[in-house]
């Protein structure tokens, strides 16, 4: 059952990131491991998620910077693939993500006699980013309005609401809002999406399809 209209409106929020270099580099996979151990949470978010925000054009091998660096710069495709398959959206807590990345690299290094390092490539530069949120002009009090907002907001709003659960404002959680609206069916379907397997445009299309189906839009 829907209780549309009885909850606070959902305010769409766009964002952009201010990128910061931490001045730390890794020339080999052990230094990468040590860097991941020490990196602030914002750095792990940056290197595993914000690819989707900064590159809507496919310009890297994987959306995970650690994986791309291992595969391209170190030419260790095995580690690149093992890191690429770590899905940052599987982890509710960034420390669990950190532990998994460390464990993948540690196990990989344990199986090798030497530490693979950059030969002719570039070192890994640890970065982090600050998300600056900017109210979008869209708000929704019903599922129809939510669908319309999704269709017209800047791609960065899709990123903010669906790719950054830990860094967005709590009230910007679309799942919580959909649940409050009584549209648990829609919330459950959105919950089942895999952001890491989509571009922002692809994610937007999937969200619109879910809304259209829930709204009984012809052709959905």
């Amino acid at each position: 059952m829907s209780s549309e209209g009885a909850v606070q409106p959902f305010e769409f929020v766009a964002c952009l990131e201010l990128r910061e270099m931490l001045g730390r580099v890794a020339w080999d996979e052990r230094e990468l491991l040590a860097g991941i151990e020490d990196a602030p949470a914002d750095s792990l978010y940056y290197h595993t998620r914000s690819y989707f925000l900064r590159s809507r054009y496919l310009s890297a091998l994987y959306p995970n910077d650690f994986a791309t660096w291992a595969a391209i710069q170190v030419r260790d495709r095995v580690l690149g693939e093992r890191l690429a398959v770590v899905d940052p959206f599987d982890f509710g807590d960034v420390e669990l993500l950190r532990a998994d990345l460390i464990s993948v690299i540690d196990a990989h290094l344990g199986s090798r006699g030497t530490v693979p390092r950059v030969d002719t490539g570039e070192p890994f530069h640890f970065m982090r980013s600050t998300l600056i949120d900017v109210p979008a002009t869209a708000r929704a009090t019903t599922l129809e309005e939510f669908r319309d907002g999704l269709a017209r907001v800047d791609g960065s709003a899709i990123y903010y609401h669906f790719y950054e659960p830990a860094r967005r404002r709590p009230e910007a959680d679309p799942l919580r809002w959909l649940d409050a609206l009584g549209r648990h069916d829609v919330a459950d379907r959105v919950r089942a999406l895999h952001p890491s397997m989509s571009s922002l445009d692809g994610m937007r299309a999937e969200l619109l399809a879910i809304c259209d189906q829930a709204l009984g839009v012809h052709g959905a």
Binding site: A14, V134, P135, A136, T137, D154, G155
Partner: peptide, 15 residues
């Protein structure tokens, strides 16, 4: 550029 880009700039500048 997409129209949202300019809208975003104006709202950001508001801060």
């Amino acid at each position: 550029v997409p129209p949202q880009t300019i809208d975003l700039l104006r709202r950001l500048a508001g801060r």
